[in-house]
Each structure stands twice: as C-alpha cells, then as structure tokens.
Amino acid sequence: MQRVGSFRFLYEGERWEWSDEVAALHGYEPGEVTPTTELLIGHKHPDDRVHFEAMLAEMLTHHAPFSSRHRIIDTQGRVRPVAVIAHSITDPSGECIGTEGFYLDLTESVDASVREQLDDHVQSFRTSRGSIEQAKGMLMLMYSVSAERAIDVLKWRSQEVNVKVRDVAESLIAESVASLQIPDHTRRQFDNIVLRASSGSRVD
C-alpha cells in the first residue's frame, strides 16, 4: 500500500477529490466512492472528530489550508494516524478557491514487502544522497515523522511533478533557505542545544 496520496478540496460546493492512494488509505477501491465531507467526518477517530470539524469550519470561514495530524478509521476498522499537509489554491485573480496537498500515513507497522520497496528506493538514491538526506532531515524535523515517511513525501512529490527525487530535494532546500524565517527564540533554543550537545546536560 502506498503511504502518500494527494487530495484537493474546492470551497464552492465543498467538493473533495482524492487519489487512489487516499481512497485505499480509507479502505476503498479506486472509484468505489465519491469523497464528501460527511464521508470524511465518518472516518475520523471519535476522539479527533471535534477537532476535525472545528478545523473544517475554520477552513470554510477563513479559507485556511487544510493541514492536520489526526487518526482515521478505515472500512476494516483499522486505526491509521495520518498527517495532512496542504496549501491554498488560487484562481487567476488571486482569490483563494480551495486547498490541495497530500495525506501521509504515519502507521509504523509496515509489512516486509513495503520495507523491501523502501530499502530499494533508498538504495537508488545513494549517488545523490547529500541533498536528499538534508531534505529528509528537514521533513523529519518539521513534521515529526520517521525517515521512511520523509522519503515517502519526497518520492510522492517527485511523482507528482515528474522530476527526480534529487531535484525535489534540492528545490525544497533552496526554497526553505530563501523563504523560511526562524524566530529568534527558536534560534536561541537551538544555540543552547548545540552548546550542550554530548555534554550530558538536558535542555529544558
């Protein structure tokens, strides 16, 4: 089973679109159902449903991107933790008309065949490991995911735009360096971590 799949939500008419991978994540065959808000709510873990509905209301009211970390329950009753990462869609005039992005399955019980596929995939990156490892580390830090899930994100984006994973990694690094602003308090916290590294002292 693929661990990353894309989705799109258009505000007008509350229209959802999802890839075959996201359908499978919820337990459906490709084309078996048409995703709706009600269907998605029904798949949320009961403890996460209120948060999801509040986030949905925020998205519809303020046109905020649909990004979240929660649990879904598939058609077989299996609980799957997921991260949903998205950005806004705008029309030619610049008006925000929806949000799109991807689901990342955070379930760590990966079977042997998937592990083998991931191992093969990582092996193919060895000649360009530098930038990919750096991008992977950035994804792990930003989204608090494992190395395997970070590689899944890079692989998914590579397939979406039909370019090499190395190119995706290099673009991610360049855009992050050019665009991201690190708050001073975060930088100071990291300064302390660097200065205390391997000293045995814990940073509170």
Score class of each variant (00 low, 15 high):
120 D>P: 01
95 E>F: 06
76 Q>Y: 05
134 Q>T: 14
174 A>N: 09
129 R>V: 15
91 D>L: 11
99 T>N: 03
113 S>K: 11
131 S>Q: 04
29 E>L: 13
102 F>T: 03
33 V>S: 06
32 E>I: 05
45 H>W: 07
120 D>H: 15
11 Y>E: 04
115 R>T: 09
134 Q>W: 02
134 Q>D: 07
61 T>D: 12
76 Q>G: 00
177 V>K: 07
164 K>N: 14
152 D>M: 05
25 L>S: 03
43 H>F: 09
94 G>A: 07
103 Y>R: 05
54 A>R: 15
84 V>F: 03
92 P>V: 02
130 G>F: 00
80 R>W: 11
146 S>D: 09
15 R>P: 01
94 G>L: 07
119 D>Q: 14
15 R>Q: 13
41 I>C: 12
195 L>Q: 12
202 R>V: 14
13 G>P: 02
160 E>F: 10
160 E>H: 07
86 A>Q: 05
117 Q>S: 09
169 A>D: 02
21 E>N: 14
156 W>V: 04
68 S>V: 13
54 A>V: 11
73 I>T: 07
77 G>V: 08
27 G>R: 03
88 S>T: 09
90 T>C: 09
8 R>C: 10
142 M>E: 11
105 D>F: 02
154 L>C: 04
75 T>V: 10
159 Q>G: 15
129 R>I: 15
106 L>I: 06
62 H>C: 05
161 V>M: 03
99 T>Q: 02
28 Y>D: 09
192 N>H: 09
170 E>L: 11
105 D>N: 14
130 G>V: 06
121 H>A: 12
79 V>A: 13
51 H>M: 13
172 L>Q: 04
65 P>T: 00
93 S>N: 09
143 Y>H: 14
159 Q>I: 14
164 K>W: 12
8 R>Y: 05
163 V>T: 15
88 S>P: 04
4 V>S: 06
8 R>I: 07
49 R>A: 14
153 V>L: 05
157 R>E: 14
148 E>P: 04
184 D>I: 14
133 E>R: 11
168 V>I: 15
197 A>E: 06
96 C>H: 05
16 W>K: 06
189 Q>K: 08
91 D>E: 09
165 V>S: 04
152 D>H: 07
27 G>V: 09
40 L>T: 12
20 D>G: 13
65 P>K: 02
179 S>M: 10
175 E>I: 13
167 D>L: 08
189 Q>H: 11
175 E>L: 13
46 P>H: 07
75 T>H: 07
23 A>K: 04
93 S>E: 13
67 S>K: 09
184 D>Y: 10
197 A>F: 13
32 E>R: 08
16 W>F: 15
155 K>R: 13
120 D>G: 07
35 P>C: 08
104 L>H: 01
165 V>Y: 01
174 A>R: 13
199 S>T: 11
51 H>F: 11
82 V>E: 02
